[in-house]
Design a protein around this nucleic acid. Structure first.
Lengths: 240, 240
DNA sequence: CGCGTTGTTATGCAAGTGTATAAATACCGA
DNA sequence: TCGGTATTTATACACTTGCATAACAACGCG
């Protein structure tokens, strides 16, 4: 059936819908996260992001001054989401400080925090942190916020025990536990297939218990101090 | 003084020296590492690398099939250098397994391993590991090599104690200690000014001691098992 | 329904990318 | 001293990048 009448113009323009500003920005940020997670920071070009978001490339600069700003917004989003998920983890509402700390540890060593997507983002940005002051500030804020949260949790746990702990010890505990969580998180993100279900969470819990010298999972008053505290003052010289 | 006789041709060609293949490849790899460390992976363009190496861009493709191969060679170099430095750390030649493990821990938490330059390199590459199969293989090799070394050290330490340890426990110890080293290393690289001299090394040693339930710094036969072992089998479900 | 606003598309551009190729020249052996 | 060789330079090319701009059209309001 040749020569069918075609009402469409020879150079058809793409149909589109006008979305609200909030929605579009969110979509663009989400598309950016997808691109970075799947193909790395280098794969997050304006065209790739736009394609994934279902718009054309030019629209990005209508909502963000430049690509850099979109990346920073995406980074801030992921950082905020991580700490938020960890703080609001199931179990964090419990009254027992030991159970809260345990829940915090488990939340950071399982889905959705321990995810290769998030790790890719983290890695992609962390490499530029020391070169980009804006990213550096965002990172430092998130990092210190995380460690402060950890220090608070540990302080509450120790308050409930019969141990006396000075500020330097508390700081050392927080640094050590933070390192354990970071290290296990990285391992789990990079090679999830190498570890069994809950294996990293259990290792993390046991390691934190060992460092604190406390039992976090059977938190009776008497079970709390069967182990001798590690990281005692005489073992670790006070620094900084 | 116009119209001075100029013996140089109007279009002067750059002078150069012919270096041996090994030397040139090494120079190019070193230049690549410099570029990645200073300006991230994105800053490691063939022209920037060539400029830093004191040659022109075209030469890169005379020694490497493509830029990707140069990057892979650079990554393999840095990974190998890191584990090599840790294995050959001062103190690793001692007969006492506990002292060797302590030396290994300290080596990873001090200069020259804990360095912002190495971290920048690590961060720059790690973001692409999960997207690039070749980099992924190199990373996995280096990571497992590191953990195997750790597992060997821990096994020797435990052999010297009166403890019986099965393979699953050994694996868990290695994973936990590896995480501690990774986490502290990252913290120290990212914000060295936040920690006192040897503070991270001491925290690392104390944490490893806590996890193993052993004293690594006063390694008398009797002092070895004053602490109860952490990460026991019943505390950590066997996985993987 | 008609019209202005502005979200959105389409197109173009300058700069930068990795790579290919030819010309030049430093070095080696005779 | 003098080619031969292959390391090195220089140039060009196709492609991609982020960004600028003008045309277009969806939506709200009269």
């Amino acid at each position: 059936m040749p020569d069918t009448a075609d009402p469409a113009p020879v150079t058809a323009r793409r149909k589109f819908r006008r979305e609200g500003e909030g929605r579009r920005r969110q979509d663009l940020i989400e598309a950016t996260l997808d691109c970075v997670a799947e193909r790395g920071l280098a794969g997050a070009t304006v065209r790739a992001i736009a394609l994934r978001a279902g718009v054309t490339a030019g629209l990005i600069r209508h909502y963000f001054p430049g690509k850099e700003d979109l990346l920073q917004a995406a980074y801030a989003t992921i950082v905020g989401r991580m700490t938020e998920q960890a703080k609001a983890a199931p179990g964090m509402e419990q009254a027992d400080p030991r159970r809260r700390l345990a829940a915090f540890v488990e939340a950071n060593l399982g889905a959705p925090v321990m995810d290769v997507r998030i790790f890719s983002l983290w890695a992609g940005f962390i490499g530029r942190v020391h070169a980009d002051p804006t990213l550096s500030a965002a990172h430092r804020e998130g990092y210190l916020g995380f460690r402060d949260e950890l220090e608070t949790l540990v302080a509450e746990v120790l308050d409930g025990s019969d141990r006396t702990t000075d500020k330097a010890q508390l700081r050392h505990y927080a640094i050590a536990i933070n390192a354990i969580l970071d290290g296990l998180w990285i391992e789990g993100c990079l090679a999830p297939e190498m570890f069994g279900h809950r294996e990293l969470a259990d290792i993390g819990l046991a390691s934190v218990e060992a460092v604190l010298g406390l039992d976090l999972r059977t938190p009776g008053e008497e079970a709390a101090s069967v182990r001798r505290p590690a990281l005692s003052s005489e073992a670790v010289g006070s620094g900084g």
